[in-house]
Design a protein around this nucleic acid. Structure first.
Length: 287
DNA sequence: CTAGATCCTCGTCACTCCCG
DNA sequence: CGGGAGTGACGAGGATCTAG
């Protein structure tokens, strides 16, 4: 079984997916298209040759380092595959700032969501099962993988534990409940204030102040309790969304791995078949 | 055994896409 | 057009591995 691995290149910020077997690493973030797992996609590398002609709906991705490489979508239209040649494609005559912005923009070119991809898979599976009951490529493994996405999120996960709340003790003795504010980018004044209660000490950015007269908690006196609640809700939803997204990503990668395995087996079988037919043909040919 | 390296998972932010 | 959903990027922290 191939091991597909996500490598996070911190310096370049690009994420590459690679298998230990036949697929050279392809920078997915640099592509506006994605390998659709629902189709019989074949990845052809410079070193290894995978024959695609035997596949009826074969999508061929040529990664031979040529800029003319294409991705053929199920609908027949061709999309150019951008090859990222480490640096040479990036650096024009841009200032460092512009360049970093440009790089960031390029990184943010989105590929289809996993939900979309898996929906496509589901649809293709339906079409596939209609088309061919023998289903060489519609193996049950992949069907199982796809079906998971229809399960509600709540069925998979326990309710997320809400972020802890800071208990701020004010001089008047009343205790405020303030959600933990965590941010990598504490800007503004930048200083941090320490609060303490019976359970220990807490550090809060200076921007966050407690208005002791009104009892309201606010950033520069404008954060209302409503806003705090909204933020809590948003964070909780995003937390769950991130979990779900990661689950789908894993599912998608598994799906691709299954497909690679299926295609490798098919390829082997076809090579064997070709060999035996050749032998048969040679025997029947009178010299 | 331990320090450093590497991997893995999670939460959050920032951004894009899509729908009402 | 606003807001929610989805997802890449990033950093933190724990787990595991490995050389000394």
């Amino acid at each position: 079984m191939d091991v597909m691995k996500e490598e996070n290149n911190n310096a370049g910020g690009t994420t590459t997916y690679s298998t230990s077997n036949s697929i050279n690493s392809v920078s997915l973030t640099s592509m506006s298209s994605v390998i659709h797992a629902n189709q019989q996609s074949v990845i052809q590398t410079a070193s290894t040759t995978v024959q695609s002609s035997v596949l009826p709906k074969s999508n061929v991705i040529l990664v031979g380092g040529k800029l003319t490489s294409v991705i053929q979508t199920p609908h027949g239209n061709l999309q150019p595959l951008q090859m990222v040649n480490s640096k040479s494609d990036m650096d024009d005559s841009l200032s460092p700032d512009e360049e970093s912005i440009k790089k960031r923009r390029e990184k943010l070119i989105r590929r289809p969501s996993y939900r979309k991809i898996l929906n496509d898979i589901a649809r293709a599976e339906l079409g596939c099962t209609k088309m061919e009951s023998s289903g060489s490529d519609c193996d049950s493994n992949i069907d199982n993988e796809v079906s998971v996405s229809s399960v509600p999120v709540s069925a998979h996960y326990q309710a997320a534990v809400p972020s802890s709340h800071l208990q701020l003790s004010s001089h008047c003795g009343n205790v405020q409940s303030l959600p933990t504010i965590m941010s990598n980018s504490i800007s503004g004044s930048g200083s941090i204030i320490q609060y303490s209660n019976q359970e220990g000490s807490y550090y809060v950015p200076n921007d966050i102040v407690v208005n002791q007269n009104s009892g309201n908690v606010g950033i520069n006196n404008v954060i209302t309790e409503d806003q705090v609640k909204k933020r809590e809700l948003r964070l909780q939803k995003n937390r769950e969304a991130a979990r779900e997204c990661r689950r789908k990503k894993k599912e998608y990668i598994k799906c691709l791995e299954n497909r690679v395995a299926v295609l490798e087996n098919q390829n082997k079988a076809l090579i064997e078949e070709l060999k035996s037919l050749k032998e048969l043909y040679c025997q029947q040919q009178p010299e």
